[in-house]
């Protein structure tokens, strides 16, 4: 029956919310990874256009990063969640489909958080590129490297090395922003905490559980990025 024993409430028994919290944490991780990858694609393309593109492309990228870094994340999620469905539905009509095409919470959340992450990722990647000493690029050119070879062997690895701290920050941001996807009804961690708190009227207990789970996620995955940084730096010393 109803209980306020935290060990029962947070446990995995029939009256325990432990399983739904852990499932929520897994969903948070899944949607964050998907959004980060989307952000990497957007950010990579935008950074490329910003560095090497023609003026209109650079302008467009400027607009993209300004808008998505200047509007509250909550608004972006709603825009994509509702607006995305409307756009898809009218697109469907163009191709002769009646009826509705919707984005579910996972897809909309991934896209929205990915778009925001892409805007920050653009700056991180561009910063990484600009940090490459000019001499290295000139040296590569001097030994007659082609554009593609230079990108693969010099620019990409070096830019990555310098961009990695920024990319790690973007990941942390994505992980935390994913909590806002709870407003679409996606059962990620924040939503699981909310549902459990509302149902039991114990927001303090479940809030603490939420803090603990998010800290596990952020610090564990932060460690992954730090390891990557360290191994790239080690590589550098070895030369």
């Amino acid at each position: 029956m109803n209980t306020s024993n935290p060990f029962v409430l947070l446990g995995f028994g029939p009256n325990g919310w432990g399983a739904s919290l852990v499932a929520g944490a897994a969903m948070t991780l899944a949607v964050s990874i998907a959004a980060y990858l989307v952000g990497l694609v957007f950010g990579g393309l935008a950074a490329w256009a910003r560095i090497a593109g023609p003026r209109p492309a650079r302008r467009l990228v400027g607009l993209y990063t300004t808008v998505f870094r200047g509007i509250p994340e909550l608004l972006v999620i709603y825009l994509v969640y509702f607006g995305g469905s409307e756009a898809l539905t009218s697109l469907g009509h163009l191709f002769g489909r009646s009826g509705f095409i919707g984005l579910d919470g996972f897809l909309a959340g991934t896209l929205a958080v990915g778009l925001i992450a892409g805007a920050y990722q653009t700056e991180a990647l561009r910063g990484g590129f600009l940090a490459i000493p000019r001499g290295e690029i000139e040296a590569a050119r001097a030994v007659g490297m082609g554009r593609l070879l230079m990108l693969r062997r010099v620019i990409a690895p070096r830019a990555l090395r310098f961009a990695l701290p920024g990319m790690g920050n973007v990941w942390q941001q994505v992980l935390k922003e994913s909590a806002l996807i709870s407003v679409t009804g996606l059962s990620e961690l924040m939503r699981a905490v909310n549902v459990a708190s509302d149902s039991t009227r114990l927001p303090f207990d479940f809030g603490i559980a939420g803090f603990a789970l998010y800290l596990v996620l952020t610090s564990f995955s932060g460690g992954v990025f730090r390891n990557a940084e360290r191994s790239l730096a080690r590589h550098e010393r070895a030369r």
Binding site: A34, V38, G92, R97, S98, G99, F100, I101, L103, D104, F106, L107, T110, L111, G114
Partner: peptide
Amino acid sequence: VLAGPAAVPALAK
């Protein structure tokens, strides 16, 4: 391509 979970259009009605 973007996100994994599949989306499929409706045979209305």
